[in-house]
């Protein structure tokens, strides 16, 4: 668990529109990498291209490659379904399956793998995943209740439990706290700190304090104007990006003098 990601000359298109251009990025295993930048700069698009989720939108495609520990995720014969089983994702808004109980939500991914599991092994997996997401104590007495009955922060942690239950190598988070209150945000940030012991984490965030708090490395994306492609301006250790970035644009953005 916890693999390295390497993007090489990555261009991402929606139809004929070039959304993100020329990304070269190395993400080290078992670290937290934050992607920051203004809205529309392509950081979410880039994140979604790492587990090939952006392909869900008709016409979306990439050129270049993304390698997971040396294996090209866009190589010939690579099944995007297999990629997504290795690289988990947590979305902006909590999205537990409303028709499933908390218990079933956690093992939803495991069920897909068609592994027949004994009841006690499943129970064990559910407990381990929920403990891993710091949610166990809050829900252990109501595992059979619907996941949509939880609070927003709890739902988001349930989604994290669901993502880690399939034991992925990488966890992608697309603004996981943007719909949450500060207390729930803190709970998720604490959780991210614990999860990086086992997983490589990439997180998109609009909150620069959050990027500074949780990440080891930070990548700054920017866009020159509407209709132009987003680009990775600079990537370095988080404290370097926030104290002495090499690019003027990065300094303007992190110091709030953007625009």
């Amino acid at each position: 668990m916890g693999k390295a990601i390497e993007a090489i000359d990555l261009d991402i298109y929606y139809g004929s529109f070039l959304a993100v251009q020329g990304v070269n990025m190395t993400i080290r295993p078992k670290t937290v990498t934050a992607l920051i930048g203004p809205s529309g700069c392509g950081k979410s698009t880039y994140l979604r291209s790492i587990n090939r989720m952006h392909e869900v939108i008709p016409g979306a495609r990439v050129e270049g490659s993304i390698e997971l520990d040396g294996t090209d995720l866009y190589g010939a014969g690579v099944d995007p379904v297999g990629v997504r089983r290795q690289i988990g994702m947590v979305f902006q808004r909590p999205n537990p399956f409303p028709t499933m109980s908390i218990y079933d939500n956690v093992i939803a991914g495991q069920r897909l793998n068609n592994k027949r599991m004994r009841k006690d092994a499943t129970d064990d997996l559910v407990e381990r995943s929920l403990r891993g997401a710091n949610l166990w104590n809050e829900v252990k007495d109501r595992l059979e209740k619907p996941g949509s009955g939880l609070s927003g922060g709890q739902q988001q942690r349930l989604c994290i439990a669901r993502a880690i239950a399939v034991q992925p190598d990488v966890l992608l988070m697309d603004e996981p706290c943007s719909a949450l209150d500060p207390i729930s945000t803190l709970a998720i940030e604490d959780l991210i700190n614990e999860l990086k012991m086992d997983y490589t984490i990439v997180i998109v965030t609009h909150n620069m304090q959050q990027a500074a708090r949780v990440s080891d490395y930070t990548g700054f994306f920017n866009i020159e104007g509407t209709g132009k492609p987003g680009k990775l301006v600079e990537m370095d250790e988080t404290k370097k990006i926030f104290s002495q970035p090499t690019q003027k644009a990065t300094e303007d953005y992190v110091s709030g003098r953007f625009g």
């Binding site: 379904v81 997504r84 089983r85 994702m89 999205n95 399956f97 028709t99 993502a163």
Partner: peptide, 26 residues
């Protein structure tokens, strides 16, 4: 909801599995 379809796909569901997980129950 697109959100639920994407949740299933991100877990590594095929299109049919996504339909079974998100579309039909909904």
């Amino acid at each position: 909801p697109k959100l639920h379809e994407e949740a299933a796909l991100a877990l590594g569901a095929t299109r049919w599995e996504m339909i079974k997980m998100a579309v039909l129950p909904f």
